[in-house]
Design a protein around this nucleic acid. Sequence first.
DNA 1: GCGTGATTACTCGGATACAAGATGTCCGAGTTTGAGCGG
DNA 2: CCGCTCAAACTCGGACATCTTGTATCCGAGTAATCACGC
Lengths: 128, 128
Amino acid sequence: MKFSKATNYALHTMLLMLEASPIKPIGVQQMAESQGVSPTYLSKILTKLVKAGLIESASGAGGGYRLLRARDDISFLDIIHAIEGTTSLFQCGFVHGEECAIQEIMKQAEQKMEQHLRQAKLVDLVRT
Amino acid sequence: MKFSKATNYALHTMLLMLEASPIKPIGVQQMAESQGVSPTYLSKILTKLVKAGLIESASGAGGGYRLLRARDDISFLDIIHAIEGTTSLFQCGFVHGEECAIQEIMKQAEQKMEQHLRQAKLVDLVRT
DNA sequence: GCGTGATTACTCGGATACAAGATGTCCGAGTTTGAGCGG
DNA sequence: CCGCTCAAACTCGGACATCTTGTATCCGAGTAATCACGC
């Protein structure tokens, strides 16, 4: 029960892209170097963000990654869901006849957290 | 980023103990059987709850586990922290000069979830 | 000058390696209860 | 009836075994820009 490092990389990388030009894509190598990660690994993380529709990739020379959505339309939850998946954090797995009351409580707690992450936009961090 | 099965077992087992007599301890075997887990594995989980001060163990014949605290003083968060640990779910790990703004948001979100889990008492489930 | 091909700078995706943590199992050791047996 | 011993029913804790997941690397393939060269 911890957030993966990949999520950390994804959040920081998205922040980098937000601070950079929205037109010209940024290369993986540049972004990887500034975080001390290997470029190939970072690219693997970024393809998840591409599949989630958050960014797009431009191949070839001068290529890289670029934000796809509006700058103020990107929440923490979007990024986290893209990396960690959207499945519930807690699954009961037993077969009680009805709904599991424990699972119900856990789901509520999870939603509290998600609610905060959905409302927290990435762009809020950049305008100091 | 998922809750472990051990947490699920711990929550259900605590519920079993809450429903049972608070005086006589319940054996692991009985509780393990009702959940389809191996007794030795469940006992390993329960020792974590013992160390957290939630329950106590009685060894020997007729032994087992027993709640240590008042019935209405046991929150979900107590149990989860005992199993999953209390360390923050998100660690930035980079060395930005100051505090990481991303981590700050994540910590807030985590606290929202914890707040809900702290307020949710286990005993609320049993009195239907 | 202009098209054409080669080179270069990139990303993409799959395969693979490695490490750590979650999930279980096994077994020996200690502890309490209770039954049996002898005085 | 009392006390002792012994067996049975438990938990405890450490040592493994296994499986899944996260983390990371390597490499071949494809693609776009740029450069070079010949016409």
